[in-house]
Design a protein around this nucleic acid. Sequence first.
DNA 1: TCGCGATTGTAGCATTTGCTACAGTTGCGT
DNA 2: ACGCAACTGTAGCAAATGCTACAATCGCGA
Lengths: 137, 137
Amino acid sequence: MTEIAKTSEPHQRTRGDHATETAEDYVEAIADILESQEACRVTDLAKRFAVSHVTVHRIIRRLQDEGLVVTKPYQPIHLPPKGKRLAARCRERHTIVYRFLLAIGVDEATAAIDAEGMEHHVSAATLARFRELAGPG
Amino acid sequence: MTEIAKTSEPHQRTRGDHATETAEDYVEAIADILESQEACRVTDLAKRFAVSHVTVHRIIRRLQDEGLVVTKPYQPIHLPPKGKRLAARCRERHTIVYRFLLAIGVDEATAAIDAEGMEHHVSAATLARFRELAGPG
DNA sequence: TCGCGATTGTAGCATTTGCTACAGTTGCGT
DNA sequence: ACGCAACTGTAGCAAATGCTACAATCGCGA
Ligand SMILES: [Mn+2]
Ligand SMILES: [Mn+2]
Ligand SMILES: [Mn+2]
Ligand SMILES: [Mn+2]
């Protein structure tokens, strides 16, 4: 039989991507912040994402339940090994998407914006092509 | 002063993209379906997106409130001019993203999946570069 | 015409992510 | 030592999107 792609499959994948997107952006942001300052606090993330501290607080609690971050009441936020690994993977992917956009001639500001959304929907296969075309880091 | 990109701007843009994503995918799907059959019904969309008919029903009602689709109780779904225009724009963008992925060597199944998610985060500037690199249709 | 299967609609629930308002905690400077 | 400002946490709300269960409607074949 001819290969009829199930029309629902891309949409199911996209929904799945969105379900993990918040976790990815948060651990990546925490890793970033911890490289430029000694502690990552709820307010740092609230500024970074331009959302209220309440939204950040609730999401951090959920990520802690999932084992991706560690924190205690009134204490800064840390990344356990599981969170560090995810952050490293996401940063790598994010960087490749960003550098790829630059490589094809997109300006830096636009590349930064588009990469932030696109990264979560780039499969391993596409990322491999992006990496080749992005050239040396 | 040096141009320090506001770190929150990419995230704000991504949230905005997600807010319009459902409308875009729905009108695009309705236009697609109306090209291969005479009527588009709630069940057609439920199959296409692999969600329950209830989810589709509610979203269609909201899109009708926004003037993007037209329907009446127990009747098929139509696209008014506003919906047709959005559908055409989205399909064009979707096609370019898909063809661009093929052009850089991604296989068809993967390109279909990645394009479905990526399309909503591709700016006009990036789309222009994709169009060039995708080659003749 | 009538009835049954398919379709559409409604009720009610869960989760995620956004918000404001308010309350509790911390720690720094005086 | 203490008081105030910043930070953190809680309460309660809204909107979007997912679900199941059930009810109503439609239309086609017998
Ligand atoms: Mn992102
Ligand atoms: Mn996204
Ligand atoms: Mn899409
Ligand atoms: Mn997306």
